[in-house]
Structures are given as structure tokens and as C-alpha cells.
Design a protein around this nucleic acid. Structure first.
Length: 972
RNA sequence: GCGGGGGUCGCCAAGUCUGGUCAAAGGCGCGAGGCUCAGAACCUCGUCCCUAAGGGGUUCGUGGGUUCAAAUCCCACCCCCCGCACCA
């Protein structure tokens, strides 16, 4: 039999919807549980990886619901941001790669892609796609509260949040450098660039050498080497521009000149010259006053910074090598009017002392690496070495003015500061890993973004509040707490708005759109409002500041708020009540990647806006999903869309497969084989359950056997273990117990009590099995809700298992003795098999000899003695022989105690106590009653004797080896 | 560089806080047997090495240490992964 998942799924999905069981409203009689998970960004379909976070949250929601909580589990859609716009643009431009992705991987029909020229169409399309998938996989969401972050009403909410933050002084304005696409006129992040390169912004120092009144700003990362400058490098074949820059005249490369504007300098181009026209002229070092010649070098890149480079041959390998190259072919440079003698006269200046190197570290490294020309790529490495060594252990020499004796790392900062202060230098931001190319094809540059709005997470008072909030929260898994603490510590100002993208405009500065990590931090509160906003058709104009102040903070006068918002007082009160009922969030689920940003902002913003009693209580963080051990990625082609996976494997097996391979914080590994095997396991459970349901359920006169009591008892420990695991969200462990270990117990039970003939003959067994199915179907319901509903219904229950009560651990049903007996039996079989294996014999008859009574006496007494304190073996025997009956046993006792001593001592305390409580087992009876079972298991005749039975058959005299819990064995 | 996580018997992965039935759960893979016309599925057993009757030996990144006892505690070292922002 194969389950038709799609049919079962559809049936129950419809039932859930029509009965509205996942819609939560105020119910003062029931305790609420408010759980949210990060809403999706609809720019692609969900895949299995997304499924993990949501499925985990759903399992959590379903569990709490079964625990009797009034669970609110809602969902929204995060439209805010720029990627959808960028995608739309690329599609409109006919980007083959993206079209192919949409077509082939996302399965979007070509006609639809046409419509995607309108960005909102993309969002709407994937919104529906994702929502459909969430329904299909069985998430127990309250869809009435759904919204998108560009709904006008939501915008009013975000505006309120931002006014609130600004009023508290947490919003500040400032300037900072960003990676920038000059064509798009937008900041660029990693996802905006070809090859997903993050633009690295570096700080060059411009040192302004004076060339006859015009300044030559040499760009350097090492301003402290200004004392070692012997000349200036220009690229002879490049174009340079003389411009008026603010109040000065500058000479920089054509490309560099363009960048100056983006760095907020006023640039007015005056004259273009070729590099070669400047070669041979002299410029003055602004710090030392030394005049140095301008020389040609091919390694100079006019596209990098200003295209003007100062030459420090003593400490910069490039400079040294370029000078050498020049000296080798002086003649070639006569057209520039350079006197060959001049070249010879230029010698490197040593300004930094570095242990392990000569005066000229640059030369040392060039020699070491056997570099022959300035075109040699090894020069990069050489530069890095000199830079790093000098930075960390170099000291400034006596020829460095007021910086003498300083470590290079400090001198570098000082020189920079002094240069900038005295206007002899400037800061110039440049992309270090250039070229970084925007997806539009233009090369990215650095722009100083002016008047940028920031949320000031660097505010110490705010940080204190955030720490306070975090300190009261439950973090699952707990090991992630340090990461939150660290993030709170290093967070500084965070740009919170940009000039483009979907979202809410800053209420006080409409040019700016609030960016996505800032409009998604307290929206959980909005779920409690959106239900009313939708059902009462409340318009954005009604959602004034007063509205939110009243509803969310209880501030203001009801009458007045009612007047301003044109809402009835009752309605306002009702909304306020709903918010107060559900808030704060009891649990927030999200992926690991959001810890250093979203989740920490979530803490900050709650701490800033809400009073402590409304601060969130828990964060649950989960790892990602690997596909058969590999990271999922488009280039591997191993991304399975969620809906496809549901169709292929079934929702329930898929849910289990995503959750069962790793605990929450670890990365889970998905494999189709696993999903299939889970499918099989669920099918078997289904078949088994159906079979059990048909058993006669007249329990009268049922007398449970030991194995019945054992299974009942085991079931209780499974209930206990699963419940404890679920409380800690140790989902994997819960699945392990309810799905795998319980199955093993069941297999043993069925072997022990085969349904011989008609199972109707065994009423006790029917009862046990029914109990088991009844409990198990509920234990599995959060994981495999569809199948469990189906079985639950077949069992004749009226209600739905989704809202049934979670099984309660019943200590009364625990039977320690039954468990010990079964374990003894298993152990005996194991030992027997072991002997058979080692001896390589085909057994005819197997004889068991159970321990003499005195051994049980000594065994139990020993347990008690060892429990009260550590005793050595001598002490133990001494104590035992205080008993006269033991004394009579004599030498046998010594031998026996010697054999059990180590075993007892190594035994876990819990087990010792249990065996002590259980007292003696009637092993003889247990084994004799199980003879039939043992014979079948071992495929031989079985006989059982007591050790003290004088008539026993014992040719090898093995009976004496018997120990409690370990009958002696003889095999013939 | 700073911060976080991790290295366990073919692979994945529990166990580590709270030392002791831990040669170490579970899954996958592999092997044998059962079932079957056959196969798949399923069930049972096995899957570090040795074994002489239920036993022994060597294992949990590496090297030391503490302890009657260490995967687990302490010290040092090696290796791997992730984050460091204006972006969802």
C-alpha cells in the first residue's frame, strides 16, 4: 500500500481551513503563546532550506497548541528593499542568465516573466508562490493577519516606529563612504556586483607635492614613508588633468579627477596634459621641503586613486624596482629631458628600522624573490611582506622629524592626522579590490554619502537596555548568546534609509526610504493590529501617531484618539486589548545568518520602544540545510524548490527529513533517500495503526503479561523523553524517540508476543497496542500533521489531532520491574548469541541456570552498601559477612563478590538505585515462561534450571557462574 | 585581525555542561539471513581488531596532565567552517 499524500494533504488542509482552527483570538481563559518567524522576501520561490526555519517554527506552534496554549502563529511578506527592483531591471534588459534562472529553476512561465518588468509583479508572484507552499506543507498559520511591508497601513506603523526612535535620540545624521555605481546612482553591496564581490573601501592619504603652484596629490596607504620620497611616478601615456579643486589647483589622472567629485570636492577642470609632458619636472615634498623629480613608471595605474604616486624605493618594492628599470635604460628616457646622471644620483632613503632586514627592506625582498622587473606579479607579494613587517615591528629613524622612534603603526596615524590638519594632505577613499563591477556593467567607485540617516546602535544607554532585554531572554540554542552579546558590543551606527527601493519613506525626510533591516524589527506587534485593520477596513489616514501610541503603549486619551482616528472607542479598546493579550512575543524563530543583524536589531528596537514587560521572551535560531552534504547553490544546480519537494516526497516525510538530521543550531543534511525512507516509516505506522484500530476493544478480563507492562512502561518513558526534548526544542531528539526508538520497542514487543492466531484472543495486547497508537499519533502530530489527522480520524476521534491534548507522562504506568525483566531477557539472548558466534557451533540445546537465592541476597545488599559510599572490595565482603547466612556461604561468596564488584561500581547510580528498588527478579519463572520465545529466537531447545536444583542437567558444571541478571548458560 | 562554532567507529550525527553498562544512540551506506516467482520495500542480525563460552585489545583532531575511572575535566598545539554591516 502506498499512501496518496496529495489526497490526504488536501483533505486535511481543507478541514483545517474550514474549521479555522489555526486562527487565534483573544481568549482570557486560555494562556496565549505568540510565536513568529522571519517573514520571507518574495524574490524567488522557497526551497528546502527556507523550509527548515518555517517548519521548525510550525512544529513549535503545533506543539504549544497541543499543550493547551492559545497559539498565535501569523505570517507576512517583506517587500522592502532593492533586490526586486534590480531583478526587474535586469529582466527588462533581457539578462539571459536571470531569465534562465526564472524559467528553468524557478519554473516561471515566459509570459509571466514579461510582466516582471514591473517590480511589484515579481513580489506578488512569489508572494503567492511562497504562500501556496506554506499551505501545502501544512503550516498552521493564521492567515487573516497577513500583510506586506508596503501596505500603506504598515508604512504608518513604521513611520510611528521611526518618529519614536528619533524622539528618543536614536536617529542621527552623518556622512560616510560607500561603494557606488555611478551609472545607477546607488550604493552597491555584494549582491549588486558581478561575481558578488563585496567592494572593500580603503583610505588612501593624498600628500600634496607642489609643482610650480599646482599640487600633485600622491596617493598612498603609507603616509609615514613621506620622509623617504626620492621622486614621483607618473604614467607617461596616461592623461592627467589640471583642475581647480575647492580652493586649490590639483593635477591628477583623468579618472582620478572624476572620482574627486564623488568625494564631495568641488572640481573644475582646467587643462588636460599627457603624463609625458610632466616627466622631468620637479615637485616639492610638503613635509620635508625636498624637491624631487617626476619620473615615468609603467606600474602606475591611472585608474587607481589619483594616478600620482610618490616613490619610496627604500621601503616600497615597486618603487625600488621601477627605479632600477629606469637606470637600466636611461637612453630611452632622454626624450623627457632627463639627465642620465640625475638617475644615477637617486638613491633610496632609509627611514624605518626593521629587525632582520637591512636598511632597505624593499631591496631585501626583491632579492629574495628574484624580482627582475616592475611588471613582475610577485611585487604584490613583496609589497605585502614589507608592509606587514614594517607596520608591526618597524620603528621610525632619526630622519623622520617629530616622528622619530615611533612604531610605524603609530607614526602612520600621526602623520596622517598632521597632514590632514595642516591641509598638506587629504583623505581619499578608493575601492581596494577594484575593479568591482556593478551588475549594470559600470565600474564601482567610492562616494561619500552625505546626510545619511543612521540608527545609532552605538548609543551606550541603548546598548544597556538591549543587554537587559537579552539577559531576560531564552536563547535557543544557548551557545549563541555570546554572539548576541558580541554583536551588541560592536554595533555602531547603522544606515537606516536609502534613496531607492520599496518601503516606507522617512516621515521627516521624504527623499529617503527606510531600508529593510530597519522596518522589520517590531512588526510582530503589527500582527495583532492587522486583523482589525483588514476586517474593519481601517485606512492609512486613520493610523496616526496617536493611534499607535494608544494601542501599543497605552498613551493618550481614548476619547481624543477616537476623534482623531475616526474610530469607535470600542474598536480602539478592542485592538488595544488584543495587543495586550498577545504581546510580548513568546518566541521568535529565524535562521543563523540573522543573528548579527536582524535578531539583534529586534532586541534593540523592542528595548527602545516598549516597556520591559513587552520585551520578547525567546529567540530560536536554526542552521541551514545542506543538500547531500553540499551547500545549496544555483551553480551546483542542487536547489529543490519546496513545492516540488512536497509533490515528490509528501509534506510529512519532507517535514521530518528537514528536521531529523541535526539539532537546531547545526546544519541539517537533506537527502532524497532519507525522505523516501521516512515516507516508508510513516506508511508502516499507518498500516500498523489501521490494523490495531480493527482489533477488538473489549478490555474486560484482560490480564497484562510482563511484556505488556513493559511496553506500557516504555511508552511512558518515550512520552517523558519527547516532552522534555520538545520543551527544549531538541527536535531531532524528539523525532528520534517518537519515530525510531519507539519503533524498536514495538518490534521487540511484537516478537515477544506474536499475534498468534487471531489477535482477538489477546485482549490485553489489543489494549496495549491501542494505547500505543493513541499516544504515538499525538507525539508525531506536530511533525507529520497530515498523516496523524488521518489516523486520528480512523480511530474514531471527533476532534482534530492538531488541537488534541499532548500526552501526559503518567508515572503510575511505569513498571521498573517489567523493564528490568525484559532487559535481562535481551541480555541473556545477546550473551547466548555471542557464545554461539565465538564457538561457531550449531546449538541443539541451550540450558539456563538462574542464580541461587543467596546470590540475590548478596547482590542486593551490595547495591545498598555501595550506594551509601565508596567501599573497597574487602570492606564490601566484610559488611556482607556481618550477615550470618552469608557467612555460611563461605568461599563462594568471595568469588561471587569479586566477579560483581567492578560491574556494580561502574554501573550508573541511577541503575543501581533502580535495581535496588526492584529487588529480586524471579528469573527462573521468567525464563521458563519464555521458553517458547527463546527457542524461536535461538533456534534450539531451551531448558531452565535453578542453580540450587540438585536434579539439574549440568554436565559442564556451569550453574555456579550464574549471577543475578545474568543466568549461567550451557550450550550443547 | 576581532568574534563565534566545530573536528566522534565508511558518510551524516548524538553524547561533552552534570566523568562511570560508552566500542560510544539514531540515520544513511555496506554485508548476511528471512520474506518473495524475482526484485523493491520490509523484518532480523552484523558492520574497529582479536577471540579460547558470555572475554580481551585499541579508539572519539594531536600531545601532555588530573582521576580508581576521561569522548566528557585542565593545559598546549594543529586543522576546518561562519560573521565583521548598510544587504536581504
Amino acid at each position: 500500500m502506498v499512501l496518496e499524500w496529495s489526497k490526504i494533504e488536501e483533505k486535511w488542509r481543507k478541514t483545517w481551513e474550514s474549521l479555522h482552527i489555526f486562527e487565534a483570538d483573544i481568549n482570557p481563559k486560555r494562556e496565549k503563546y505568540f510565536l513568529t518567524v522571519a517573514y520571507p522576501y518574495p524574490n524567488s520561490p522557497q526551497h528546502i532550506g527556507h523550509g527548515r526555519t518555517y517548519t521548525l517554527a510550525d512544529v513549535h506552534a503545533r506543539y504549544m497548541r497541543m499543550r493547551g496554549k492559545n497559539v498565535l502563529f501569523p505570517m507576512g511578506f517583506h517587500y522592502t528593499g532593492t533586490p526586486i527592483l534590480a531583478m526587474s531591471k535586469r529582466l527588462a534588459e533581457g539578462d539571459e542568465e536571470l531569465i534562465d534562472t526564472f524559467n528553468r529553476i524557478y519554473g516561471v512561465p515566459s509570459a509571466k516573466i514579461e510582466e516582471f518588468k514591473e517590480p511589484l509583479e515579481i513580489a506578488k508572484y512569489f508572494h503567492e508562490e511562497i504562500k501556496q507552499g506554506m499551505k501545502e506543507i501544512g503550516y498552521s498559520l493564521d492567515w487573516r493577519r497577513e500583510f506586506t511591508t508596503i501596505d500603506l497601513q504598515y508604512s504608518r506603523f513604521i513611520e510611528w516606529q521611526f518618529r519614536k526612535l528619533r524622539k528618543t535620540g536614536y536617529i542621527v545624521q552623518g556622512s560616510h563612504p560607500v561603494g557606488w555605481c555611478p551609472k545607477d546612482g546607488n550604493p552597491v553591496g555584494q549582491h549588486d556586483t558581478l561575481g558578488d564581490v563585496e567592494p572593500e573601501i580603503g583610505e588612501f592619504i593624498l600628500i600634496k607635492f607642489n609643482l610650480d603652484g599646482c599640487l600633485l596629490p600622491c596617493a598612498t596607504l603609507r603616509p609615514e614613508t613621506v620622509f623617504g620620497v626620492t621622486n614621483i611616478w607618473l604614467r607617461p601615456d596616461a592623461h592627467y588633468v589640471r583642475s581647480r579643486v575647492n580652493d586649490e589647483e590639483w593635477m591628477v589622472s583623468k579618472e582620478g579627477s572624476r572620482k574627486l567629485g564623488y568625494l564631495n570636492l568641488k572640481v573644475e577642470e582646467m587643462e588636460r596634459v599627457k603624463g609625458s609632458d610632466l616627466i622631468g619636472k620637479w615637485a616639492e615634498n610638503p613635509l620635508t621641503g625636498l624637491r624631487v623629480p617626476i619620473l615615468p613608471a609603467s606600474f602606475v595605474d591611472p585608474k587607481n586613486a589619483t594616478g600620482v604616486v610618490m616613490s619610496v624605493p627604500g621601503h616600497a618594492p615597486y618603487d625600488y624596482q621601477a627605479l632600477e628599470d629606469l637606470k637600466k635604460k636611461k637612453e630611452e628616457f632622454s626624450p623627457y629631458g632627463i639627465d642620465p646622471k640625475l638617475l644615477d644620483s637617486i638613491t633610496p632613503i632609509s627611514i624605518i628600522e626593521l629587525e632582520g632586514y637591512s636598511n632597505l627592506p624593499a631591496l631585501d625582498v626583491i632579492k629574495k624573490m628574484a624580482i627582475k622587473s616592475q611588471e613582475d606579479p610577485k611585487l604584490e607579494e613583496a609589497t605585502a611582506e614589507v608592509y606587514s613587517r614594517e607596520f608591526h615591528s618597524g620603528r621610525m629613524k632619526t630622519n623622520t622629524m617629530q616622528y622619530v622612534g615611533l612604531p610605524v603603526s603609530i607614526a602612520k596615524e600621526r602623520v596622517k592626522e598632521d597632514l590632514v590638519k595642516s591641509k598638506k594632505g587629504d583623505i581619499f577613499y578608493e575601492i581596494l579590490n577594484r575593479p568591482v563591477v556593478c551588475r549594470c556593467g559600470a565600474e564601482c567607485i567610492v562616494k561619500i554619502f552625505e546626510n545619511q540617516w543612521f540608527i545609532n546602535y552605538g548609543d551606550e544607554n541603548w546598548k544597556e537596555l538591549a543587554r537587559d532585554c537579552l539577559g531576560h531572554m531564552d536563547i535557543v540554542p544557548e551557545d549563541l548568546r555570546p554572539e548576541f552579546e558580541y554583536t551588541i558590543r560592536w554595533l555602531r551606527q547603522k544606515a537606516c534609509a536609502r534613496k531607492s527601493g520599496l518601503g516606507t519613506k522617512l516621515p521627516w525626510d521624504r527623499e529617503w526610504v527606510i531600508e529593510s533591516l530597519s522596518d522589520s524589527v517590531i512588526y510582530m506587534a503589527y500582527y495583532t493590529l492587522s486583523k482589525y485593520i483588514k476586517s474593519n477596513r481601517i485606512g492609512p489616514d486613520q493610523l496616526t501617531n496617536e493611534f499607535f501610541d494608544y494601542v501599543l503603549l497605552g498613551e493618550g486619551n481614548l476619547e481624543e484618539v477616537s476623534r482623531i482616528t475616526m474610530m469607535k472607542e470600542e474598536l480602539l479598546e478592542k485592538i488595544r486589548e488584543e495587543f495586550r493579550y498577545f504581546y510580548p512575543p513568546d518566541s521568535r524563530h529565524s535562521g543563523r545568518d540573522l543573528v548579527p543583524n536582524h535578531l539583534t536589531f529586534f532586541i534593540f528596537n523592542h528595548a527602545a520602544i516598549f516597556p520591559p514587560e513587552l520585551w520578547p521572551k525567546q529567540i530560536v535560531v536554526n542552521g541551514s540545510v545542506l543538500m547531500e552534504g553540499k551547500k545549496m547553490s544555483k551553480s551546483f544546480g542542487n536547489i529543490i524548490p519546496l513545492r516540488e519537494a512536497i509533490r515528490k516526497f509528501g509534506a510529512d516525510p519532507l517535514r521530518l527529513a528537514i528536521l531529523s538530521t541535526a539539532e537546531v543550531s547545526q546544519d541539517a543534511d537533506f537527502s532524497p533517500a532519507l525522505a523516501k525512507s521516512l515516507n516508508g516509516r510513516l506508511e508502516r505506522f499507518y498500516e500498523f495503526a489501521i490494523g490495531v484500530i480493527d482489533l477488538q476493544d473489549d478490555y474486560e478480563g484482560a490480564r497484562p503479561s510482563n511484556e505488556d507492562r513493559w511496553l506500557i512502561s516504555r511508552l511512558q518513558s518515550v512520552v517523558k523523553a519527547v516532552t522534555e526534548a520538545m520543551d527544549k526544542l531538541r527536535i531531532r531528539e524528539a523525532i528520534n524517540h517518537s519515530l525510531y526508538e519507539l519503533d524498536q520497542d514495538l518490534q521487540w514487543y511484537l516478537r515477544r508476543s506474536p499475534m498468534k492466531g487471531s489477535p482477538r484472543n489477546n485482549k490485553a495486547m489489543a489494549r496495549v497496542l491501542k494505547d500505543l497508537v493513541e499516544v504515538r499519533v499525538r507525539l508525531l502530530a506536530p511533525f507529520a500533521p497530515y498523516l496523524c489527522e488521518e489516523i486520528w480520524e480512523r480511530m474514531g476521534n471527533d476532534g482534530l489531532v492538531s488541537v488534541a491534548d499532548w500526552p501526559i507522562y503518567n508515572e503510575k504506568k511505569v513498571d521498573e520491574k517489567a523493564e528490568e525483566v525484559e532487559e535481562m531477557l535481551m541480555r541473556t539472548i545477546e550473551d547466548t548469541v555471542n557464545i554461539i558466534k565465538v564457538k561457531k557451533i550449531e546449538p541443539n540445546r541451550i540450558y539456563y541456570y538462574t542464580s541461587a537465592e543467596w546470590k540475590w541476597g548478596a547482590y542486593l545488599k551490595s547495591l545498598d552498601i555501595l550506594e551509601t559510599g565508596a567501599t573497597d572490595i574487602g570492606g564490601l565482603i566484610k559488611k556482607l559477612t556481618e550477615d550470618v547466612r552469608m557467612k555460611k556461604v563461605g568461599k563462594e561468596l568471595y568469588k561471587f563478590v569479586q566477579r560483581i564488584y567492578d560491574e556494580l561500581r561502574g554501573m550508573p547510580l541511577e541503575m543501581r538505585q533502580r535495581r535496588s528498588r526492584v529487588r529480586a527478579l524471579d528469573e527462573f519463572r521468567v525464563l521458563r515462561d519464555s521458553t517458547g520465545f527463546l527457542e524461536k529466537e535461538l533456534n534450539a531447545k531451551v531448558e531452565v534450571y535453578r542453580e540450587e536444583d540438585g536434579e539439574r542437567f549440568d554436565p559442564m558444571n556451569r550453574a555456579g557462574l550464574a549471577q543475578p541478571y545474568r543466568p549461567a548458560i550451557y550450550i550443547s
